[in-house]
Simulated scan of single mutants.
Amino acid sequence: MNASDRTPADLLRSALAADPARPLVTFYDDATGERVELSVATFANWVAKTANLLQGELSAAPGDRLALLLPAHWQTAVWLLACSSVGVTAEVGGDPAGADVVVAGPDALEAGLACPGERIALSLAPLGRRFPAPPAGYADYAVEVPGQGDRFAPFVPVDPEAPALVVDGTERSGAQLVEQARVDAAALGLAPGSRVLSALGYEDWRGLSTGLYAPLAAGGSAVLCRRPDLLAAGALDRRMESERVTHSVL
């Protein structure tokens, strides 16, 4: 990654320029058997579409706050980088009542209705499927995002010193987030090509860093595992071997 990168969106742009075909996020849901692998290029395309949805359809702007009520999931990672691209502050598990936008999964739809602004629902079903019908009070992400543009340009340049992420009660600017991700990557011994398997949630910084930001900062990739406790004995070890995992955080 480039030393000049100061926001997570900068890190993604550098990754795209360096090697767009390499894997960036691989996601397993062991409750459903789902496996999704996104290359840097595919992930960046999802981020661009989501950022266009956020900036255009939802009229979000730098300084706005988005309550992100989602578990560790590849679509959560997309939303985190889309917020960084627009300059919106992502509040992981944030209070919807104080947010300008809420993005909620199936388990948080009722809580998300407290948001007075725009509301987006994600089914989190395999293959990014839509809901049979949009939940009351929400737009369905899977319906809204496909028609968005594949390229994104912010209306206003993103300030690296502005708040970018709030998790576990701590607010970080884009620059602080990138710096901490680099520190974490060094502590884990990550290098370009490292592949990190994480079974941690996204509800705190450690889970977010090991499951997204540190691998991104190091030029590596993340293998997210949701509900690995459902695996048979030895299955996780076989997964690590098949996915060529170099580091694991369980």
Rank of each mutant, 00 (worst) to 15 (best):
M1S: 14
N2D: 11
A3C: 11
D10P: 04
L11N: 01
L12T: 03
L24F: 10
Y28F: 06
D29C: 09
D29T: 05
D29F: 13
D30K: 13
A44M: 06
K49E: 06
E57A: 03
L58T: 02
A60W: 09
A61P: 07
G63M: 10
G63A: 10
R65G: 00
L69W: 08
H73V: 10
V78A: 02
L80N: 02
A82C: 08
A82I: 02
C83N: 04
G87M: 05
G98T: 12
A99L: 04
A111T: 14
A114W: 01
A114C: 08
C115A: 04
G117D: 06
E118D: 15
R119S: 14
I120A: 03
L124M: 06
L124E: 02
A125N: 06
L127F: 15
Y138P: 00
A139N: 04
A139W: 14
D140A: 08
A142R: 13
V143N: 12
V143E: 05
P146L: 14
D150C: 10
F152R: 04
V156M: 13
A164F: 09
A164Q: 15
R172D: 04
G174T: 08
A175C: 06
L177M: 03
Q180H: 15
R182E: 00
R182I: 07
A186G: 09
A187K: 12
L190S: 00
S194F: 04
R195K: 15
V196F: 03
L200Y: 11
E203N: 09
D204W: 09
D204C: 05
W205V: 01
R206T: 01
G211W: 02
L212P: 00
A214C: 02
A217S: 13
A218I: 01
G220F: 01
V223S: 00
V223A: 02
V223Q: 06
L224C: 00
L231S: 10
A232Y: 08
A232C: 07
A235V: 04
E241Q: 14
S242I: 12
E243M: 06
R244N: 12
V249T: 07
